[in-house]
Amino acid sequence: MRSFFSALLRSKAGLFGWIILSIFVLAALLAPVLGLDSPVRGSLSARLDPPTWTGLFSPGPHPLGTDQLGRDILSRIIYGSRVTLAVAAAAVILGGIVGVGLGIVAGYFRGMTDRILMRLVDIQLAFPLMLLALLVVAALGPSLRNIIIVLALTSWIRYARIIRGQVLAVREREFVQSARAIGSGTLRIMFRHILPNVLTPALVVGTLELARVIIMDAALSFLGLGVPPPAPSWGRMLADGRTYLSTAWWIVTFPGLAIVLTVLSVNLVGDWLRDYFDPKQRGLK
């Protein structure tokens, strides 16, 4: 644990990523106790109020202004982050379980199993993921559960590919042979002996996937196929606010900034984790 923090202090980018991400996660977790305005009920008398600090006329205490329905933008961003982060985390974990599982199966059995699974991955990678997501959401209807399933569906392939490659190497290591020699069965070897050896790359893929899934979630909401209203979501805030861009810039600017900062911080954390877990990178820089 101490080496974790000292390694973190040595990387400015990693530290920055962790701090920003922690702020977002904390804000999301603590949203109900922060004393925010309601993210869904606005007052029409306060519509399109600019942020308080701009010095423009602004009656209410709205640090980031209000939208076209008079709803507080800060509150909507924070409540929106709850939905976004929960959906993204659930999708990445679900996709990770499926992807890592199938990756281990493909890498361990090789042969026909491997060929079928990897061609499936190839086909899905060749197919525009956004289009796939749109199709599935349009067919199943936008609900929290469906969004998570769709995002997981676009996510498992990346895990499967990378984990398969790792397993191909790990399965040839001698401890696999010695596990077989003490009578371990196939399932036990795959998930007890090989799985722990590929968890690190899975974790790194997971963080990078988290960033991608957040963007995709925002894109789906922007297109009106995200988590249905009234739940606030960053993508829909962008979509709703874009007609006011010339008169009320704050409606789209702050949710956009939230997306950029979250994705950036997740990516930085992912990069940092990759370096942290790669012993060859340690001690460099």
């Binding site: 290591r173 001698e174 401890f175 010695s178 596990a179 020699a181 003490i182 009578g183 371990s184 722990p196």
Partner: peptide
């Protein structure tokens, strides 16, 4: 065979550096 391996017949492999799983 699995019931015999590691039970009635024990095995010791060549390289103790690589025959133990490093993460367990």
């Amino acid at each position: 065979l699995r019931n015999i391996r590691g039970g009635r017949i024990g095995f010791v492999f060549q390289d103790p550096m690589t025959s133990l799983n490093p993460v367990l």
